[in-house]
Simulated scan of single mutants.
Amino acid sequence: MDFEIRKDRRPQGLRRSDPEREEHLRLVDLGIGNTEACRIIGINRRTGKR
């Protein structure tokens, strides 16, 4: 797995992170729910819904 959870897990503001987006989609495709996928990656649940 070439995705790494970033050390600084504070909100990223308007910056978009393509690796995080791809990892979120991969986790959801594996059957993990949005809330749990967001928790694993370190993003807000609402961000994952977008």
Results as ranks from 00 to 15, higher is better:
M1F: 04
D2I: 09
D2R: 15
D2Y: 07
D2A: 15
F3T: 06
E4P: 02
E4Q: 15
E4L: 13
I5L: 11
I5G: 00
I5P: 01
I5R: 07
R6Y: 04
R6D: 03
K7V: 13
K7C: 11
K7M: 11
D8E: 10
D8L: 08
D8Q: 10
D8I: 07
D8H: 07
R9C: 10
R9V: 13
R9P: 05
R10S: 14
R10F: 04
P11H: 11
P11Y: 02
P11Q: 12
Q12T: 09
L14G: 06
L14S: 10
L14R: 14
R15E: 15
R15W: 08
R15A: 12
R15S: 11
R16L: 10
R16V: 11
S17P: 04
S17T: 07
D18I: 10
D18Q: 13
D18Y: 02
D18W: 01
P19E: 11
P19K: 06
P19W: 14
P19L: 09
P19V: 07
P19F: 13
P19S: 10
P19T: 06
E20M: 06
E20L: 01
R21K: 11
R21W: 02
E22Q: 14
E23A: 01
H24E: 03
H24S: 04
L25D: 09
R26I: 07
R26D: 06
V28Y: 00
D29K: 11
D29V: 05
D29P: 05
G31L: 09
G31V: 08
G31Y: 06
G31Q: 12
G31N: 08
G31F: 07
I32A: 05
I32R: 05
I32W: 03
I32G: 04
G33T: 13
G33Y: 00
N34V: 15
N34Y: 04
T35A: 15
T35W: 04
T35P: 02
T35S: 14
E36R: 12
E36D: 12
E36W: 15
A37I: 11
A37Q: 07
A37R: 05
A37K: 06
A37L: 08
C38I: 08
C38Y: 00
R39L: 08
R39T: 13
I40R: 15
I40C: 03
I40Y: 01
I40E: 04
I41K: 03
I43Y: 01
I43P: 02
N44F: 00
N44M: 06
N44L: 04
R45G: 02
R45L: 06
R46V: 07
T47G: 09
T47K: 05
T47H: 09
G48L: 05
G48R: 04
G48H: 03
K49F: 05
R50N: 14
R50W: 04
